[in-house]
């Protein structure tokens, strides 16, 4: 299929899983009658009814706990957070109830649940609505954390997440919902593993790791690096933030000798920090220059457009940093 927007891929993946398995249901604010705040559940209430597409009051803590309870009892809830900023109200149930119970119960009680919604920085919505939570969840044992870039990834990973028997954090991005990608006609059972990175573009001079919207910036930057500077960048789409696919990253560093991590999150204890640690722990002897990360500025997100641009990672920041790492004059 050509030109499928990410939001549609998500919608269709939910629908396919709900048709396949009666135990799957969707709960969240405005998911039903309103068809989703970002229209990722358009038409689902018409097909599945209010018993399986469930509108909630604005009570993240409560409905997340209710869904964890339902998952303990064997149902397979998909919890939509209008944005992940609001999941902070529910993080106790995500971490203390969903993530830890399998362990605490000695394997007795598992929690097959997906927490999904837009994460990261859309544009112009200021500090409380622009934040990447990848490293927050990646920190916690008991969770799986994935973040798709393309429509196919969104579909295949979401289906895999729904079928997984563990709690999965599924980080989407508002700026990607409308982006169209061609999708292979893989059929309803076309899944992707939740723990594997994807090499989007092979290269030999520098490895760039990214996830979600940052893959977009990295791919664009790699074009410029190749065409204007003759630098061959390997772009890795991390997909999984817990676990991080060390093998793919380390193999790439062994080839290129340089590692640049890009993310919208903050630098301190971020995903990039973990990538740097992986590089140093597992590929130290192969490094030709210091592992480097590009992150958002170490500040809350400003509202003013000009400041927001300064705060966020961008194609030009990637190019500039990659050139410096490769000792290439601008």
């Amino acid at each position: 299929m050509s030109g499928v927007p990410v939001r549609l891929a998500i919608r269709d993946a939910i629908a396919e899983e709900m048709r396949r398995d009666q135990d799957v249901f969707l709960m969240g604010e405005e998911v039903g009658r309103y068809n989703g705040a970002y229209k990722a559940s358009q038409g689902l209430m018409d097909e599945f009814g209010a018993g399986r597409i469930i509108d909630t009051p604005i009570t993240e803590y409560g409905f997340s706990g209710i869904c964890v309870g339902a998952a303990f009892a064997g149902l397979r809830p998909i919890v939509e957070f209008m944005t992940f900023n609001f999941a902070m109200q529910a993080i106790d149930h995500i971490v203390n109830s969903a993530a830890k119970t399998l362990y605490m119960s000695g394997g007795e009680i598992n929690c097959p649940i997906v927490f999904r919604g837009p994460n990261g920085a859309p544009r112009n919505v200021a500090a409380q609505h622009s934040q990447c939570f990848a490293s927050w969840y990646a920190h916690c044992p008991g969770l799986k954390v994935v973040s798709p870039y393309t429509s196919f990834e969104a579909s295949a990973l979401l289906k895999a997440a729904i079928r997984d028997n563990n709690p999965v954090i599924f980080l989407e991005h508002e700026s990607l919902y409308g982006k169209k990608f061609d999708m292979p006609d893989g059929g309803a059972d076309s899944l992707l593993p939740l723990d594997k990175a994807i090499v989007m573009k092979e290269g030999s001079d520098i490895t760039i790791t990214a996830f979600s919207i940052s893959v977009d910036h990295a791919l664009c930057a790699s074009e410029v690096l190749r065409n204007q500077y003759g630098i061959s960048a390997e772009v890795i789409n991390l997909i999984s933030l817990r676990p991080i696919d060390k093998t793919t990253i380390v193999n790439s560093i062994k080839k290129t000798g340089r590692i640049l991590s890009v993310e919208e999150g903050w630098s301190v204890c971020g995903i990039g920090a973990e990538i740097m640690a992986i590089a140093v722990e597992h590929a130290f002897d192969y490094l030709d220059c210091e592992p480097t990360r590009i992150t958002s500025s170490d500040t809350p997100m400003p509202y003013a457009k000009t400041l927001e641009l300064l705060a966020l990672p961008s194609q030009s920041k990637i190019i500039e940093t990659a050139l410096a790492m490769c000792n290439c004059p601008k």
Partner: peptide
């Protein structure tokens, strides 16, 4: 989003 705003342009509408 201007520096003359009550939050110096860093807060915005909300």
């Amino acid at each position: 989003g201007k520096v003359t705003g009550c939050s110096k342009g860093k807060g915005g509408s909300m």
